[in-house]
């Protein structure tokens, strides 16, 4: 049996996780509440092979994916126009299409930091990314959903999905690089 206190103390982490996907506080709190209740009811299924956090996160992830499926065809967003071009990255490339600046390697410690600092950077970066772009990235890379399912849920074409993922990856990569170059200057 897990101490209910141990489950409750993961609430802030789970809320952060849900907020990053849903970006609506009420919906995130509801999903976390449902997760904690489900966990308390099914403690017997916790084998102890993973941490309590990992177990709770997997319950929450299924709830979020279920929620997205239920929303299905609901009109979540306006036109794709503003999100479908990648002009924001003009500054990274020269006229001939080659990198303007050398691409710096993410060294050993930095490669470890991507998962440690992921939520912090993702939250900060989400503020400059259109909502749908951040959501497509979270569905694909955080929740591991297949492209066809994402397209179906958000009613976008595979081509649009690919463009949004490219934009999200480019933006997040810049956020991590900027953060580390700042830290390196200190």
């Amino acid at each position: 049996m897990i101490d209910p206190q141990q489950i409750e103390q993961e609430r802030p982490y789970l809320l952060r996780y849900a907020l990053a996907q849903l970006r609506e506080r009420d919906a995130a709190e509801e999903a976390v509440q449902e997760t904690l209740l489900a966990a308390l009811e099914s403690q017997g299924s916790f084998s102890g092979k993973s941490t309590v956090r990992t177990w709770l996160t997997s319950i929450l992830r299924f709830k979020l994916i279920d929620g997205l499926r239920r929303k299905g065809k609901e009109k979540l967003f306006e036109s794709l126009e503003d999100e479908a071009d990648d002009g924001d990255f003009d500054g990274l490339f020269a006229q001939d299409g080659h990198w303007r600046e050398p691409v710096r390697a993410w060294s050993g410690p930095e490669s470890q930091l991507v998962s440690k600092q992921f939520w912090e950077v993702f939250e900060a970066c989400s503020k400059v990314m259109p909502r749908r772009t951040a959501m497509v990235f979270a569905m694909r890379e955080v929740m591991g959903m297949e492209i066809a399912e994402i397209c179906n849920n958000l009613e976008i074409s595979a081509t649009n999905c690919s463009v949004l993922l490219y934009r999200a990856r480019m933006t997040l990569r810049e956020c991590f690089s900027t953060r580390w170059s700042r830290e390196g200057e200190r």
Binding site: S58, V114, K116, F118, F122, E141, G144, L172, F176
Partner: peptide, 14 residues
């Protein structure tokens, strides 16, 4: 690395 970090964060592994 970005994918790997996101997936690990998605699994609640830090």
């Amino acid at each position: 690395l970005l994918r790997n970090g996101a997936r690990r964060a998605g699994e609640g592994v830090e």
